[in-house]
Design a protein around this nucleic acid. Structure first.
Lengths: 205, 205, 205, 205
DNA sequence: AATGAATGAGAGTTCATTCAT
DNA sequence: GATGAATGAACTCTCATTCAT
């Protein structure tokens, strides 16, 4: 966790630092990243980064949390559609996925960061950070899942954890495949539609 | 590629080295791995590892290739069942997935290694190694996919690349979820059955 | 070029480091020199030398430049004597050569360094450093040459480059032979006189 | 000194090895040269080089001696011209210098090797080799010098050692300047003539 | 006579971290 | 509050050399 001092910085300064860190961590992964390069790009002193963060790991953990939060904000809150029937539900899901794709498309670094994070090969000390970030993303998915089940859009005969895992896996397919195979943003909608339809077949009752 | 000398070593010695490398790379990823630790664990000298391999990257690449190959061998060759109808096909797939799970279960390091491999955040220098390993794994999946389509077990209206991506994503769910949630090997079969059924719903015609 | 930090060090510390580097480079040449030995003799840490200089090459280049500059300072600025006739000119030259001899005599390492520098068998990477140092020494010689020609003390019918080459060659004879054959400083003057007279015969009109 | 075994090799094999060594030593100097690269280029085994030579230094020393000998052979024996007057003498000298230039021109590596050798920054252990090589070149020059003096072509009022030093210095000018500034072999003769004339002025009575 | 496997020492370089100012 | 000088450990990699075969 960053020391409280960090949050008292002008927001601009914070962003400069986090942006440099995002660039570096997403490009080289946690282990391959260099604090030296981060501070060089951010234009701050060696001492400063240690004045704001306990360690490299701490910086990474904070960056991760912050990026996941931002992503969730960008994707928007999940709201059960007024129409309480499956078609409308899946339409909402599709909409969220499309926003997700656009967020990833706008910041490939974020996608890299998350992929590195999920590889799980980091120092044991950052696992806590990883779990934290994961937990902050889960509630949103959990709520979406419960809503889908309550209106009969999603099957209820298999464990939630499995449904979530599948949801996240397909989510990763969305960001990797859609962006790789349909780089033109105008094709995003169609590609997402296809994949969400697949997801729907997979986990509808 | 390892120098030919490596292959002339007693098989035991080769295994000792590769085992040490697998431990290290799977625990820390490519960037975080330390050659010093590898040679210490393998009980060989600093010069030796460079006598067998050109570089850290070379060692990693060879390890990756070798592990993927072994995995494929362990999972077994894909053969279209005599009965050429979907149920038999999916049964075969399920069978392969179960073997996959058991292979992963037997060597969690392998799972870590492959996850690091797929995170893709490594130095640009190891991308060749990654691509190579990927290519050695793809044919197997491609053949399985084509067979499924030819007997009407898999839909043909969406691109192969997408089907493969989904197949691999579900595959990852199998190794992460099954092992996490059903650590008792006796439950593996049931869990795999559930997930393969989900996969079937997702991509059958 | 050394990082600016180096120049903010106490002059004494700078000298300690450069002295150690001079010892090492002059004794073993660029390729044979060991940074480990340099830092050991200078009594600084391994990290420090890289905090001050970009690389071994950078340290060598800076040392070379600095030594050449110091040498030029010690030899003194070249000034055309008031009396604009050859005898006075050659007398001035002789005077400079004598100072050169004394500088070399005071620091044999400098002579070694310069000899290694001129051998030019270094890695292609240090050629820039060598060229730089050369350029910083040339203007002095060029000015001296032009002055000699303008008052008729030096022939003008052969290319300047050749005259300079001969001048430098004789210069090297001065430092190697005078020091080797006339180690007693009191004999320096006579020896230099002899050699400058030879040089005069060689390149006067 | 190479072990006697080396000389029992087929001359061709000897040449292959020495040629590879010449390439490497002339390109990187003694300290920077790599035995590994030498044996790789020569296509011999690691053990062989140590079967023929005691050490890296031993190989270097032998190469040096051999090259100097070859050079002297190529330049040809010094013979006092029948006509015993200065013009004929200097003409002979000029002729030898021209042959020297051509030898250097034919093998720039030789020039590099000798320059590295003369830099004197090698390990103390190779100094003996250096001295040996120097001694094997000296007799030739000494004889030439004595001949010149006996017929009044060279002054006798300064020490022989100094005359020799100047001769060698001018010799170096010949190989460095002539080759650098007059790369066209057809210009060699004129350039050499100019420089030998300068030498003549410098050391004739 | 000849090989090449094997090695430890050491190379240059980068690292995350500390701490006096 | 913020800096940047300083460091030692660790890094990947190359070296000349030895020796069993």
């Amino acid at each position: 966790m960053p020391r409280p001092r960090f949050h008292t910085l002008p927001r601009e300064r914070q962003q400069t630092i986090l942006h440099a860190a995002l660039d570096e961590f997403s490009a080289h992964g946690f282990a391959g990243a260099s604090l030296n390069r981060i501070i060089a790009e951010a234009g701050i002193s060696k001492g400063s980064i240690y004045y704001y963060f306990d360690s490299k790991e701490d910086l990474y953990a904070h960056l991760l949390r912050e990026q996941v939060e931002q992503l969730i904000v960008r994707v928007g809150p999940f709201s059960v559609p007024a129409a309480t029937e499956p078609d409308a539900y899946w339409s909402t899901i599709e909409n969220h996925c499309l926003r997700l794709v656009r967020a990833y498309d706008a910041s490939p670094q974020l996608a890299n960061l998350l992929r590195d994070w999920m590889s799980g090969t980091g120092a044991p000390a950052i696992e806590n950070a990883q779990r934290d970030a994961e937990l902050s993303a889960l509630p949103w998915m959990t709520r979406a899942l419960a809503a889908g089940q309550s209106i009969g859009a999603i099957r209820t005969d298999i464990p939630d954890a499995l449904l979530l895992a599948i949801g996240m896996a397909i989510g990763r397919v969305i960001d990797s495949w859609v962006i790789a195979e349909a780089p033109d943003p105008r094709e995003h909608a169609a590609a997402v539609h296809t994949i969400v339809d697949i997801l729907r077949r997979a986990i509808q009752p």
